[in-house]
Each structure stands twice: as C-alpha cells, then as structure tokens.
Design a binder for these strands. Structure first.
Lengths: 244, 244
DNA sequence: CGGGAGATTGAGCGCCTTCAATATTTGTGG
DNA sequence: CCACAAATATTGAAGGCGCTCAATCTCCCG
C-alpha cells in the first residue's frame, strides 16, 4: 500500500460510503473526491470497542464489516441500539453529542476511516450536497430508531425478527452490498436477542420455526429470505422512502 | 388580545420555550426576540391530530399542554414514540424528514405556535446560538429515544415505569415547569401502557404497588415522587448532562 | 485432538396478557 | 346542583408467550 489514496484499490474501499450517501443526494465531484481522500482505513478485529460509553465522539465511516451501538445495564443485560453496516457513519453529524451514552463495538472484523474531514466540511459550509446527504442519513437513522421502539414495544418475537431481517436487507441494498434476497449474516443469536429484547433460547426457536416453515435459509454465513413477501407482511415492514 | 405579540401577556406564553432552549445554549437578545415574535398561539383540544403519519412536517413549538408522537399497527396496537412537553419543538430541525412515519396527537388541551421562523433562521445562518440550542435539543430527543429502546427492550414493567417517571420529571425541570418532585400528570394508564409496551391492566397493578409501597402519590392530576432516590435506582436512570 | 464459542433441545415456571366485570371519576346537559 | 353518559381505573381469574436453568450437540480453529 502506498501513502496515497488515489489508486483504484484504495478507492474501491470507499465504494459503500459513496453509494450510500449517493442514495440520499446527488453528490458533486468534489464531494466524492472528499470521501476518496479520507485517511487510509483502520482495521479492527471482531469484538473491538470503537467507542466507549462516555467518550467524545470520533467521526468515522464504516468501510466493511458490521458494528453495533449498545448500552449495558448494571446486571449485565445488554440492549443493542442499532446495527452499523458498511457505508454507515459513526458520529458523523453537525453537532457532537456526548449525551447519547452508548458504546460501539465491532461485531466482525472491520475497516473504518476517520471522517473528521467530512465533519469539518459540514461546519465549513462547503459541500452542500454532501451536507444534505449526511442529514438524510441521520434522518434515516432516526427512522430506524423509531422502528426499533415500535418493534421492541409492541411486536411479538416473530414479528420482531421478521422486521429486523427486512430492515437489514433494505439497508444492505441501499449501500449496494447486496442485490437480491441473500445477505451476509455475521450475527449470532445472542446479538439478535440483545437487539430485540428477547432471550437467546427464544430467538433460536423462532428462527428454527422460520427455517422449517421455508421462510428463510441460513448457511455458511449467508441468510436468504425465501418468502420476502410473507416476512414483510408479518413484520408490517414499510421501506423508508428515499426521495426526501 | 391585540395583533402585536410584544405585550407581557403574550411573552409569558413563550416562557417554556425560551427556558428550554436557554438550557442548551446562551441565547442572544436577538434569539429571544425571534422566539417572542413567533405567531400567536394556536389552541387545540385534547385528542387533536397535530400531524398525520405521512404529512409534510409543520414546524411548531409546544407552549402548554402535552402531546405525543406515535405509530399504529394494522391491528390497532399503538406505540407512543415520545411525549412532547411544554417548550418542546415539533419538527423543528434543519432538514425536513417526512420519513419518520409517525403521527402526533395532543394528549391534553394544547397551545402551539408556528415555528417556521425558527427553521428559516436556521437555514439563513443568522442566530448561531439558537441553532446550537436547537441542535442540542435534537440530541436530547435522540438520547430519550435511545433510553426508550433500552426501556422497552431490556427492562421489566416496574423498571420501565420508574424510568419514564424520572425522564418526564427531568424534562419538566428543564423547561422550568416544575421545581420539586411533584408534577402535573395528565397521562392515563392507557397512554403509559402504549408508551412502555405493556397492557393497561399491568400498568394499573404496577402503579398500585408503587402507591401502596409509598414510592409515589397521585391525586387531582398531580403525581409526586415520594422516594425519588429509590425510583431512580430501580430505573437505573441517568440524567443527561447539559453541558455539551 | 482438545478447547471454546455458538446452536439446539427439554422442562418448568413466571411475568405479563387477555377476558370480563365492576367501581370510580369526569364531563355534560338539564 | 343533580342525573346521566362516557371515560378511566380497579379487580379477579385463567392462560400463554417468552424466560430461566441446564444439558447436549455442532462447528470452527489452532
């Protein structure tokens, strides 16, 4: 690897980021150049702490791998707040908000890039299209958070799992990571349980039921939605609109 | 009432808004003047729809009374996403986000004021302190949303209720609506149930337990926390920092 | 060939739900 | 000020969804 990020190999790393933000706004050449010029990637193993609970935010974008924001309760209960997928920003916003009180951990091996330059551009007022894209991305995050409240508050275990599957597939589509109904699936049943407020055992039984029912298939780290229409129906999933 | 909003009576209506935003940033005289110059209040009865699910956002501030954002499921299940208290903004942000897919209803009789002027000022770049305050207010909203996920995902019925009590009291303190441990309480047990993902019957039993246990007292629409330390402990409530 | 993380299975139970009925409070009109 | 209706709160009983505990199985990795 050279010290310059201008070669094709380095650019390819940023594809997920560019595709995701491009879904929200028409980025200019300068916007894309800014993203390509981000510092070379940092790599993290699975289970690394990207961000401590009370730490000052460090803006990053996730180039590859999955991560999660979560909060712990005193007795060890864990609640995953959101999953972070390739192309997603971490702390990329116009105002640092140290008050969210959530930690971030990698779920798989991960590559990230420092996104301070993006935040600086937001404050400088250059790159208006990128700013709009970032704001839309934040609005989508809020939408997912609201979905999460509804899921954990008023849906059954079966519905929660279906809804989470639909959300993750939709977000992977957005960043161009997948195309059809098959998606990489690095999540353990414990992670799913911690996101959906369920026990590991119950998640296991529900997934088994879905598999035996021919709704999904999971093997070799790939999960396939065999009956996406049924799953979306069960989950009452509504894909967010992109035109905003 | 005259057509001008410059008299003391009209100004007093905006006190909650000014106090709340002042908690986030040092507003300039011009910022406060902008708030005082907002159009005269609209009044709504209890149960009015302030905002439909898919409607374009209409920026408002809540001057008095309580409201709630919620989402309905097909079969009638309702999830309250957040409570809106005096001084809170509704759709006051730098980017309209029609994708949240939540409706807003009044819970009591309510007075609101159109806040388009605030949003316009945000976009114009005048009033930087007010802009910072709005951003901090949004960050606090996100914090509360995250708390809500944790509550509904990983806490027991008792813990959820305690946490909600603490959050609402803390937010009422913030806008100067109350001072001690007594607060106005317009919420029915059904509203609490719809916020916390519980059944009405169970909320009733939990509240009764808390009353008989001397933790709270409720009468004449006023709820008092008799053992705030215990309640905060049970809820594992952490008050958000204000210095940000 | 261990060792460990994750997945699976069974048994028992409890938190919370649903259903249903009654009491109480609130609001409204006479 | 009372009467009536509607909304809200309360209580009891029965049951189910999802939990805990505990053991076993599978798979991956060095």
């Amino acid at each position: 690897m050279g010290s310059s990020s201008a070669n094709a190999g380095a650019r390819a790393q940023y594809e997920a980021v560019v595709r995701r933000y491009s879904a929200f706004a028409s980025l200019s050449a300068a916007d894309i150049e800014l993203l390509h010029a981000l510092p070379l990637a940092e790599t993290w193993p699975a289970g690394a702490e990207l961000h401590a609970e009370a730490a000052p935010p460090q803006p990053r974008v996730l180039l590859s791998g999955w991560a999660a924001r979560f909060r712990m309760l005193r007795d060890g209960r864990r609640q995953i707040i959101s999953f972070i997928l390739p192309g997603d920003g971490i702390g990329v916003c116009e105002r640092p908000s140290p008050l969210t009180l959530t930690a971030t951990t990698t779920l798989t091996a991960v590559r990230t890039a420092d996104a301070s330059a993006v935040v600086a551009a937001l404050h400088a007022g250059t790159h208006p299209a990128l700013r709009d894209a970032v704001r839309s991305a934040i609005a989508l995050d809020e939408r997912c958070l609201i979905d999460h409240v509804v899921r954990n508050g008023r849906q059954t275990a079966q519905e929660r799992i279906c809804h989470l599957l639909m959300e993750l597939r939709w977000r992977l589509l957005l960043s161009g990571a997948i195309e059809g109904y098959a998606m990489p699936w690095p999540l353990t049943q414990e992670m799913i349980a911690d996101a959906l407020g369920l026990s590991i055992v119950h998640v296991n039984r529900m997934l088994q039921h879905m598999r035996r029912d021919g709704q999904i298939e999971a093997r070799h780290g790939v999960l396939t939605l065999l009956q996406p229409g049924l799953i979306a129906e069960l989950a009452e999933f509504r894909a967010p609109p992109l035109t905003s």
